[in-house]
Amino acid sequence: MTGPRLVSILRQGSYLIASIHTALDDTEMTAFQHDLVERIGRDRARGVVIDVAALDVLDSFASWTLRTIGEVARLRGAVTVVVGIQPEVAFAMVALGMDTGSVRTALDLEEGLAFLDRVVGPRRPATATRGGPA
């Protein structure tokens, strides 16, 4: 891929922190879904934070994709939390009749990680993780 990265997926202990950096079209959103699901398996992640603060809208397709990620992750043994939904985006989701389904949401990254610590158990220290650079 050329140009600035659209998304990044970083590993932190047994968690993955996935950040969307810009508005994504459906193809990019689907690619993000595949990459993230693949990383969950490869890194044996137990928790996933998806930061959507940079998304301009969460329309039906984007919301549906987040739900799908959350449900696939759950089947693979990971808990997903979506963070950074902007107030006006949240308002539009409500008006649209959309929500993130069984996927939990939190205000920001810090609260998302705190939520994961509560439901998954505390993160293992980063030094104990294996694998290459994220």
């Binding site: 809208v57 969460l58 329309d59 039906s60 107030p87 006006e88 539009a92 008006a95």
Partner: peptide, 21 residues
Amino acid sequence: FSPTDLTLLATAVSEVTRNIV
């Protein structure tokens, strides 16, 4: 338009445009 109005508009445009595609 407030930021919320603009996001509602953008979301609606996203939906109808996706229908075209």
